[in-house]
Design a protein around this nucleic acid. Structure first.
Lengths: 259, 259
DNA sequence: CGGGCAATTGAAATACATCAAGGCGTGTGG
DNA sequence: CCACACGCCTTGATGTATTTCAATTGCCCG
């Protein structure tokens, strides 16, 4: 059990199991903060039963499913929710008035769109579905209160904060100081180790990201991303077909990533 | 009183008034978080006397002065302090193994190096003095406790957090999607409005930043920064002499900043 | 079968980096 | 007081990574 969905294809992601059918675990969201603090109704019953703190209040929330490429949250949208991805891939981005876009991070199941949502009603970031996405939106003040009741509250927030900040800094460094091939190599390796931490396969995995989205994440153009990925493939570093990416030569990728 | 030090030159910054001579306010740190929560010994006595919450405990801290270009904190330095700039200019940066550097932000008097320090013992950022800097280092856990006692704790942290994150996102957008002249124009305008918020002059102000440091902040080379600044000067957008910058044509700068 | 989006590939343009040389100001040691 | 070195700024010539433009292909879906 808790087997990762290796064979899950883009466009046909695992259906969200409704709360009533209690007991079936989605592997995609096992690291979710809402589950960690026993606040997600999708898992609340089963998990709270075995938990010592039976006073955990369930937090009002709604679930929605978005098809690929659909907007989940607008850049300037102000609302008192904390959005958490349950399954699928989403992209968090900001844009200039001229429509130039920067994808700040890709979100996977269990990711809070940004820790910022715990404190502020607007993050200034847009969220868009990359593959099909299910997303749960919690009431912010209730979620915040539940989190504050949780032991180790400060540590949880601090860690998440630090991680988010660290990623942002690294992105800055990438964008300003690293050549395109290094950025792409690093992106692939980071994704791989991120999947490892969630217990998924690290050598071969689904890769629903469009070249344009990748370009927006790495500060490049889609054309240039394409050229470099082609080079990677003909050099035998990676394989990529039918939205599944395989790392063939991790060592060489790491060398590229170093600089 | 509270007059801003217009005539303050690089290398001869206003001296820090020792706590014993109580009552003389440094304009440079008037927005400081430590003063806001009545925890800075430099201002503790005078301000706490007039404050309702007389139970605010003073937080252990040390002050240090750093000459220009001196390292204040190393990138991987782990210590249980929250460093706050009292006066002068500092730069917060991260680097790759190959010595490529990205200045994440410039810090002015009253700035916490990063909100991250409230929660974690290491930010992954190095801090370096740009001009002469006085810096106070508070004990982290005590500072944190004092902050938690303060009414509106959540709001304060949330706001600071959101602001820091917003700046990081904008920097990402700059680095990835905006041309060099736009980045520089934006930097100047941002600095100006930042000084405005602290009650300083916005049209003409001290500018101790070296071109290399500016280049590191904007993802460019010093040579290129120089060329564009020269262009700005000959186009009558700005004047820059003896480390003092004057905005001559704000409108044109804004046009450049737009894209 | 056609229409549209994504990926691919090549040719041309360009924004920026790199390299190199010289000037200016400032501190330092003779 | 001068000579000199050193850091910083400046400017021009050259190189290159990446963008822009454009045309083609394949593919999915109605």
């Amino acid at each position: 059990m808790l087997e990762t969905p290796q064979n899950q294809q883009l466009g046909t992601p695992q259906k969200l199991v409704p709360a009533e059918s209690e007991g079936v675990f989605l592997p995609s969201c096992s690291g979710c903060l809402a589950r960690q603090i026993s606040v997600c109704p999708g898992y609340g019953v089963r998990e709270r039963r075995s938990s010592k703190s039976s006073d955990a209040a369930e937090v009002r929330s709604t679930t929605q499913t978005f098809p690929s490429r659909r907007q989940i949250l607008h850049q300037r949208e102000v609302s008192d929710i904390v959005p958490i991805i349950c399954s699928g891939w989403a992209a968090s981005s900001i844009s200039t008035q001229n429509g130039k876009r920067q994808v700040v991070s890709f979100l996977l199941g269990g990711d809070v769109a940004s820790i910022n949502y715990l404190f502020e009603p607007c993050s200034g970031r847009a969220i868009e579905a990359v593959s099909q996405v299910t997303c749960r939106k919690f009431g912010r003040s209730e979620f915040q209160a539940a989190l504050a009741r949780h032991p180790g509250f400060g540590a949880i927030v601090g860690k998440a904060l630090a991680a988010e900040r660290e990623r942002g800094d690294q992105l800055n460094l990438d964008l300003s100081r690293r050549p395109a091939d290094s950025r792409i190599a690093r992106f692939i390796l980071n994704l791989s180790s991120r999947l490892e931490r969630r217990g998924s396969a690290t050598k071969s995995f689904d890769f629903p990201i469009r070249q344009q989205q990748l370009a927006d994440a790495l500060g490049l153009t889609a054309v240039h991303v394409c050229k470099i990925m082609s080079r990677f493939r003909s050099a035998g570093l990676i394989a990529l077909e039918s939205r599944r990416l395989t790392i063939l030569d991790r060592k060489s990728l790491q060398d590229l990533a170093e600089q």
